[in-house]
């Protein structure tokens, strides 16, 4: 395998740069997926039948914590990639681990929130509105959960193998994924929660 020393390690081989390019296209498909889910949500948002609507359901405090955690984790994963480019293994692992921990925190709040909703009588079968809410949030949450598992396995590989073409490439791609989830969350925060509370 030829290593191109003029580029950062994650772009260091043709295979690596193909993988990054492919992942960008995958993110394009993910944008299409979330756009569809948002469309479904907007179509159904007023169809809450006899169940609660957004204003009745949403509470800002938990959502603000979620937003804070996810935005910060996006920052730390950026620091992790930066450390990786500087070849600093330990700081990279710390920042990467922090990212995953904040992801876990986000998930914890989200799950608590789901329990509250159900407790208040808003389950997935209550109305078209709650169905679309749970599926939109749930899809994002599932992405975060998958990201935590995936990230953990990458972290383990970095720990064992150090920075190689493969691990640098994976870490970088993971950071793209994580930033993407953050962007999706910003849309959820603005158009689901803030708009719902207005």
């Amino acid at each position: 395998m030829k290593i191109d020393a003029t580029k950062p390690l994650e772009y260091g081989s043709e295979e690596n740069s193909n993988k990054i390019f492919g992942f960008w296209i995958f993110l394009g498909a993910e944008i299409a997926l979330f756009s569809t889910l948002f469309t479904v949500y907007f179509v159904l948002v007023n169809r809450y039948a006899t169940g609660p609507n957004g204003t009745e359901l949403f509470e800002l405090s938990g959502v603000l914590w979620e937003t804070f955690l996810l935005l910060s984790s996006s920052f730390t994963i950026g620091l992790a990639v930066h450390s990786m480019r500087l070849g600093l293994k330990k700081p990279m692992m710390i920042f990467f681990g922090l990212t995953l921990l904040m992801g876990l925190g986000f998930l914890g709040i989200e799950i608590t929130e789901f329990f509250t909703y159900v407790h208040e009588g808003a389950t997935i079968s209550t109305s078209a509105f709650t169905s679309s809410l749970f599926v939109l949030l749930g899809t994002h949450g599932a992405h975060v959960s998958f990201g935590i598992l995936w990230g953990a396995s990458i972290l383990l590989q970095v720990k064992r193998q150090g920075f190689t073409l493969a691990t640098a490439n994976k870490s970088f791609i993971f950071s793209l994924y994580w930033h993407f989830l953050d962007v999706v969350w910003i849309f959820i925060f603005s158009f689901v929660y803030l708009k719902g509370l207005m």
Binding site: L33, T36, A49, I124, S125, S127, A128, S131, F134
Partner: peptide
Amino acid sequence: PVLTVALALMMFDRIFGSQFFTMSNGG
């Protein structure tokens, strides 16, 4: 991706009791 979403909603409606395309509760 649009098909993925459509099929997922279909599965939720049929297997998990959601209300996307139903005749009641705003579907």
